[in-house]
Simulated scan of single mutants.
Amino acid sequence: MKIRRRQYFLKEGEVCKHFAFIVKGAMRQYKVDDKGVEHVVHLGIENWWVGDRESWVMLSPTAYCIDAWEDSELLLISREDAVRLQHELPAFSEMTRLLDERNNIANQRRITSSISATAEGRYSDFVDCHPDFLQRFPQHIIASYLGITKETLSRIRKQALQK
């Protein structure tokens, strides 16, 4: 599947029927609150997966939007095909198990960071873990992902340059 910048892969209220492997491009997953503010929960670039796991597994409407931040090329897999491949190919089953483990670890670290780290610490961790994202996503997207304002991120970056 090819999608253009700002084109949706998934909209709030839809059921996530496919997970996508990003071959080329950059994507973001976010939720819009009652005030119209976007809260970024996931970023992805080449060799990352995107989709709403809860919607995909439960066949329920998603609370998120997923769109392309850059023109993107995706490989799609349906839930039915993924389940079939897990049964037929032990290597596919092992790959998904490892991806799930890594995803769980990353989510746990992100939650811990968001409830216990300073804004500076969250940014530092982000830079260490995802240096490629700094060139691919603008400051306001990164700030939203970190749960801080773009002004706070600007101040943190300015202080980091002065060190």
Rank of each mutant, 00 (worst) to 15 (best):
M1E: 12
K2N: 14
K2W: 11
K2C: 09
I3G: 02
R6A: 11
R6Q: 08
R6F: 07
Q7R: 12
Q7S: 10
Y8C: 10
L10W: 01
K11L: 06
E12A: 06
E12Q: 13
G13T: 05
H18K: 10
F19S: 05
A20V: 01
A20I: 01
I22P: 00
I22M: 02
V23M: 11
V23F: 10
V23T: 12
V23L: 14
K24Q: 05
A26D: 03
M27V: 05
R28H: 06
R28E: 02
R28T: 03
V32A: 07
V32Q: 12
D33G: 09
K35C: 11
K35P: 03
G36C: 08
G36F: 04
H39N: 12
V41Q: 02
V41P: 00
H42W: 14
L43W: 01
L43D: 00
L43I: 07
L43R: 00
G44D: 00
E46W: 06
W49V: 09
W49S: 05
W49Y: 14
G51K: 00
D52V: 00
D52S: 04
W56L: 07
W56A: 01
V57W: 00
M58H: 07
L59K: 04
S60P: 02
S60D: 04
P61D: 04
Y64P: 02
C65H: 14
D67N: 06
A68C: 15
A68P: 01
W69A: 10
E70C: 05
E70L: 09
E70D: 14
D71E: 10
D71G: 04
S72I: 01
S72A: 12
E73W: 05
L74N: 00
L74W: 01
I77S: 05
S78D: 02
R79L: 12
D81E: 13
A82L: 13
V83I: 15
L85M: 09
L85N: 03
H87D: 12
L89D: 13
A91S: 15
F92R: 00
E94P: 02
E94M: 07
M95S: 12
T96W: 04
E101S: 12
A106W: 04
Q108L: 13
R110P: 00
I111Q: 13
T112G: 08
I115Y: 12
I115V: 14
A117L: 14
T118I: 06
T118Y: 08
A119G: 09
A119T: 03
G121D: 09
R122N: 05
R122K: 15
S124K: 11
S124V: 04
S124N: 10
D125L: 08
D125W: 03
V127L: 10
D128V: 04
C129L: 15
H130G: 04
H130K: 10
P131R: 07
P131E: 05
D132C: 09
D132V: 12
L134C: 07
L134Q: 11
Q135V: 07
Q135C: 07
Q135D: 11
R136P: 04
F137W: 04
P138M: 06
Q139T: 06
Q139Y: 03
H140K: 13
I142H: 01
I142Y: 00
A143P: 00
S144P: 02
L146N: 02
T149D: 06
K150Q: 15
E151M: 11
T152G: 06
T152N: 09
L153Q: 02
S154G: 08
I156Y: 00
R157S: 09
R157N: 07
R157C: 08
Q159F: 08
Q159L: 15
A160M: 15
Q162W: 12
K163T: 13
